[in-house]
């Protein structure tokens, strides 16, 4: 089982992502954006890591989404191979139309707007530890294949454009009905609160991650590779995570299990 972590100019989480993937037992390598794209067919799954591809020029993910390597990833995804886009990777998946999976650009990850008590209190880049709730069923999606519905995960975010918006009529209803909203920001008790600091970037319905209708593609703003080992977690009660594992490990374990089951 071999995965590729696709690196663009400006990616900055590719090495951590590869370490995490290898740690759960997958083989893998960093795949530069300008390598022959057809070589992607040798891999069983793909990560689009976080960072600032092309310095977020025009808008985050817009330039990387036009690269030939993305066209090939679309073909590989059509064959059922899993793709997980983290942060900037999620932005690239949205800009390429791979998510929400209609084949069109049906959403945008706009600039963060933090609202509290009805007022804008912050804007722009923000990094913090947040709580996530898994709102889909297990086995619905490659990146949360082994995670039960309702499970809470603590992970860091670090982005300026994570505010998921859409002007496509009926799209959010459809995503809810089809179980495509995989992760939502929540408070420490797992409850919704659609304001900052729980909804950390103003995202519609506190959405932090979505999958495509087939479930093989997941995009998420939080960084599981930065919460992979328990020593990466902020000070506090980490006893609920067994041994040296952090909650981010579940995302990588999920990808591995998804590939095993699909085989």
């Amino acid at each position: 089982m071999k995965i590729a972590v696709v690196q663009f100019p400006g990616s900055n989480c590719e090495y951590e992502t590869l370490v995490a993937a290898k740690n759960v037992g997958m083989e893998g390598e960093i795949f530069r954006w300008n390598k022959p794209p057809e070589e992607l067919s040798y891999f069983d799954g793909f990560f689009l890591p976080g960072g600032f591809s092309y310095q977020d020029r025009v808008r985050a993910g817009a330039i990387a989404a036009k690269e030939p390597v993305i066209k090939t990833l679309i073909e590989e995804a059509e064959n059922g191979k899993p793709i997980i886009g983290i942060c900037n990777g999620f932005q690239i998946l949205i800009e390429s139309g791979l998510l929400p999976g209609t084949g069109r650009v049906d959403m945008a990850l706009a600039q963060n707007v933090m609202v509290s008590r009805g007022k804008i209190v912050r804007r722009g880049y923000y990094c913090d530890w947040i709580n996530l709730r898994h709102d889909s069923s297990s086995k619905r999606c490659s990146g949360s294949f082994i995670i039960d519905r309702g499970i809470q995960l603590q992970m860091p975010i670090a982005h300026g454009e994570g505010n998921l918006v859409t002007s496509t009529p009926g799209l959010l209803e459809r995503l809810n009905e089809e179980n495509q909203i995989v992760f939502r920001y929540c408070d420490a008790q797992g409850k919704d609160f659609n304001e900052f600091p729980v909804n950390v970037n103003g995202s519609t319905e506190s959405i932090a991650g979505i999958c495509n209708p087939e479930g093989n593609i997941l995009g998420m703003m939080p960084h599981p590779e930065r919460a992979f080992f328990s020593w990466q977690l902020p000070p506090g009660d980490t006893s609920k995570y067994i041994g040296e594992s952090g909650p981010g490990r579940l995302i990588f374990e999920s990808m591995k299990r998804y590939i095993e089951v699909r085989a």
């Binding site: 025009v58 817009a62 800009e95 650009v105 049906d106 959403m107 945008a108 859409t166 002007s167 496509t168």
Partner: peptide, 9 residues
């Protein structure tokens, strides 16, 4: 095709 995302621009 490149300069806007119609959902925000």
């Amino acid at each position: 095709s490149l300069l806007i995302n119609p959902h925000k621009d």
